[in-house]
């Protein structure tokens, strides 16, 4: 049996706990257990805290990694921001012994030490590498019959030098996972474009930030896409709640249901819309996603 330390971050547990419930349910179905990381904090957001003060960013991120190391477990995350922060911090500490020493010096009192002996993974990697497309396909009991727009977000793939998931201009991992549920992943204009939330733009310039989102949603609508599937809790907030904000600010309505990848897979495995928290999203599910 495989176990992961589930790093929750902020938006998953504090805004979209349906993502948390869906992730645990889907992983359990395939014999993968998740464990709490007691006392974990904000990752902290790579583009936001990294922009304010890189030293504070590295120390807080390193602390989160060390808490999982203490359990001897690899980390799984359900947010590109969390993944981005922890994976980058881990990468830096593995490459730079002087920073590792500095971190350890700072946490000596608390009995924490960075060793560099675990991996920080994104949920996409766990679904794709540990479970695999074939097993996911075999387990489908309620196939999804819908045209889907895949939204990869930015920090799972980039910077590719640090992430190591290959060419960030032509990824297929999310499309393959979507199609394993029976759905069709439809290409659309600027598919790999950012949702607009990152780097502190959502907090500081909501109007511009939502303009990114609006463009993506319009490009999806143009292709007859019926639902957005994302891989990041922050993108998820931007695409789901963002549609309400877009309506208020610009008077435009898209009404595109937004699901996190484990929520889509959860539906295909026979879990109900309610069990996956989908009935509590800002944009209501259409019949394609109601079970």
């Amino acid at each position: 049996m495989k176990e992961y330390a589930y790093f929750l971050g902020c938006i998953t547990p504090n805004r979209y706990p349906g993502i948390e419930a869906a992730t645990i349910k889907v992983l359990n179905k395939f014999g993968i257990e998740t464990r709490d990381i007691e006392g974990a904090s904000c990752c902290p957001a790579p583009g936001v805290f990294g922009s304010f003060d890189l030293r504070t960013w590295l120390l807080i991120a390193a602390r989160n990694v060390m808490l999982a190391e203490k359990k001897g477990l690899d980390i799984v995350t359900t947010c590109n921001g969390c993944y981005g922060s922890l994976q980058e911090a881990d990468h830096i500490l593995k490459e730079r012994p002087e920073l590792k020493d500095w971190v350890n010096e700072n946490f000596k009192e608390e009995g924490l030490e960075y060793k560099g002996n675990i991996k920080v993974k994104h949920i996409l990697e766990v679904l794709y590498d540990d479970i695999g497309i074939n097993k996911l396909k075999e387990a489908v009991v309620s196939p999804i019959n819908a045209k889907i727009g895949a939204h990869y977000g930015c920090h799972f793939l980039k910077p590719s030098l640090v992430r190591g998931h290959g060419n960030p201009e032509r990824p297929t991992i999310l499309d393959e996972l979507i199609e394993a549920t029976g759905a069709e992943s439809v290409d659309y204009k600027d598919k790999l474009m950012c949702c607009g939330a990152g780097g502190g733009l959502r907090a500081k310039e909501l109007g511009y930030s939502l303009t990114f989102t609006k463009q993506k949603l319009a490009n999806m609508k143009e292709k007859g896409i019926e639902g957005v599937i994302d891989t990041c809790a922050f993108c998820h907030l931007q695409m789901d709640r963002g549609q309400i904000e877009i309506k208020e600010k610009f008077g435009e309505e898209y009404n595109l249901p937004v699901l996190f990848i484990t929520q889509l897979i959860g539906l295909s495995l026979g879990f109900s819309t309610k069990e996956l928290g989908l009935d509590k999203h800002s944009i209501p599910m259409t019949e394609k996603f109601i079970r």
């Binding site: 583009g47 990294g50 930015c154 920090h155 910077p159 790999l192 950012c194 990152g198 310039e205 990114f212």
Partner: peptide
Amino acid sequence: LWMCTTCYTCYE
């Protein structure tokens, strides 16, 4: 300076 979303497209 604060308009960048840190999407890394330019970086790549």
